[in-house]
């Protein structure tokens, strides 16, 4: 019988926490035989909102979108390297849109059965809970969600992989 985890998606946003999530994803994929994918979302929804609210001018929107696309390449390549160093295959995806929506869509497209995210920042007010995009994704995705914590422990698990 196949195990409970067949298809893992890791959400990567360039934060240290999300890189820890990617390392944990590699460990879990290696130990379960599950397939592994990583997603970076270029938050064009936020960019559009900043233009609509007149905080950004059009040239800033283009400049920042380019910056975010460069970040996507950089971090997805880093995650690919992390997987390949341990002999784990990985598929990476860059999508544009709203973070929580794109995470949900990608899970549905890939039929992923586990989403791994990095540790969420500490809530300091009720507003934080309301505004956190990854937390929204965590609540709305149809699959189980794993939050990778303890950067040092995860790193040593990753390092100990053959």
């Amino acid at each position: 019988m196949a195990g409970p985890i067949q298809n893992i998606l890791v959400y990567v946003d360039g934060s240290e926490e999300s890189i820890t999530a990617a390392e944990y994803g590699v460990c879990l994929a290696k130990s379960t035989g599950a397939s592994l994918s990583a997603l970076y979302v270029v938050n064009t929804r936020a960019l559009n909102d900043l233009v609509k609210s007149r905080i950004f001018i059009a040239s800033e929107e283009q400049e920042y979108q380019q910056d975010l696309e460069n970040d996507a390449d950089k971090y997805l390549n880093h995650v690919k390297d992390l997987a390949h160093k341990k002999g784990q295959t990985i598929e990476v995806f860059q999508k544009n849109g709203a973070i929580h929506t794109e995470i949900k869509h990608t899970i549905e497209e890939l039929d992923a059965d586990l989403l791994i995210i990095g540790e969420l920042s500490k809530l300091q007010s009720r507003r934080d809970e309301f505004y956190n995009e990854v937390e929204r994704a965590m609540r709305s995705v149809p699959c189980s969600v794993l939050i990778a914590k303890d950067e040092d422990l995860v790193w040593s698990l990753y390092e100990s992989l053959a």
């Binding site: 905080i55 920042y64 910056d67």
Partner: peptide
Amino acid sequence: PPDKAGQHIQALSEVAKI
């Protein structure tokens, strides 16, 4: 800083919402 575009956008978005 130039290499923190994602965080910059996140901060501006949060201020916009507030």
